[in-house]
């Protein structure tokens, strides 16, 4: 018994200290009017749910919430879709397969500040390579304000984020594909299944557990994406790319209203938790199925 506690102690201590404490502190902070002065005086009046009310009543809240939803949904959809397509593609044997696959990892290996800065150049309205190309090809007549119009900024930032996330999806899904036994495909082929049917009835169901993990991790990563947006637009123009994450940051560290920032942070945690619960429930209900098939 003592040994059991001994083994558990380090991890419990770690979790309490670095996970439990900040989390708890964040929840209490969101219930207080915590401003710059509070740091020195230690005096942060309890305001109950006023911070949440203030945050939700702010017009930026709706914008940030919608942006977060659009940004996350679009990022996940395309990252996963393109990642899966590439993973399936690389399953085939062809020359330079390994080299190309490694090259595709580059977006993932680059520091986000670097790739963000490069995207900023690409998207530049006047001199960016994207506009220059589109203009030269005659696709558009006037330069598109990728990052400097409220309408285009969010799609542009999302595109950059999709690019960043594709390798992650591809690598994990590729690994998942490798673990599907080849004889299943052979059997399916013998039964007369075409390429699409093999994908639909063999690959897809057997890839489901891996897909769920990829999507869940992707969701968490995307919800808290910060650097890409910060480098590209800093949440602007006029909050057009403001997500809950960047807004929480700017409330806390820009306006130094830590109570409000904490409230937004908590809402973000609740949203992530909500999806985590959905994921766990999904796992439970679909859990036994693949095991049976694998037998």
């Amino acid at each position: 018994m003592a040994a059991r506690i001994g083994f558990l102690a380090p991890i419990v201590a770690y979790l309490v200290l670095f996970f439990g404490y900040p989390l708890a502190a964040n929840f209490t902070m969101a219930l207080r009017e915590y401003t710059a002065a509070s740091f020195y005086t230690g005096d942060a009046p309890f305001v109950g749910l006023a911070n949440y009310a203030a945050v939700m009543g702010d017009p930026v809240f709706t914008t940030a919430l919608t942006n977060t939803a659009v940004f996350t949904a679009a990022s996940l959809f395309f990252q996963f879709g393109i990642g899966l397509a590439l993973a399936v593609f690389f399953q085939r044997h062809f020359p330079l397969n390994g080299v190309l696959r490694s090259l595709l990892l580059i977006p993932w290996l680059l520091p986000l500040v670097v790739s963000g800065t490069v995207w900023r150049w690409i998207f530049d309205q006047e001199y960016g390579v994207l506009n220059q190309t589109l203009l030269a090809l005659g696709v558009v007549d006037t330069a598109v304000p990728w990052l400097s119009s409220t309408a285009m900024a969010l799609p542009s930032v999302t595109a950059a984020n999709i690019w960043v996330g594709i390798p992650f999806n591809m690598v994990i899904l590729y690994g998942g594909l490798q673990s599907i036994p080849a004889h299943l495909y052979e059997a399916a082929a013998l039964d007369g299944a075409g390429r699409w049917q093999r994908f639909r009835h063999v690959t897809w169901p057997l890839l489901r557990p891996v897909s769920a993990v990829v999507l869940m991790l992707g969701l968490v990563y995307t919800l808290k994406v910060f650097d890409v947006i910060m480098v590209l637009t800093q949440g602007g123009p006029a909050n057009a790319t403001q997500t809950l994450t960047t807004w929480s940051y700017s409330l806390s560290f820009g306006e130094l209203d830590f109570g409000l920032g904490a409230a937004v942070g908590n809402l973000l945690i609740v949203i992530a938790l909500l999806f985590a619960v959905l994921y766990l429930r999904g796992l439970r209900s679909s859990g036994p199925a693949p095991a049976r098939e694998r037998r």
Binding site: Y21, N26, S248, Y249, A262, G265, I269
Partner: peptide, 13 residues
């Protein structure tokens, strides 16, 4: 205590 606010913003540890 001092760093709690920073951590709590959910961004910096």
């Amino acid at each position: 205590r001092g760093s709690s606010a920073l951590v709590a913003a959910g961004l910096l540890t």
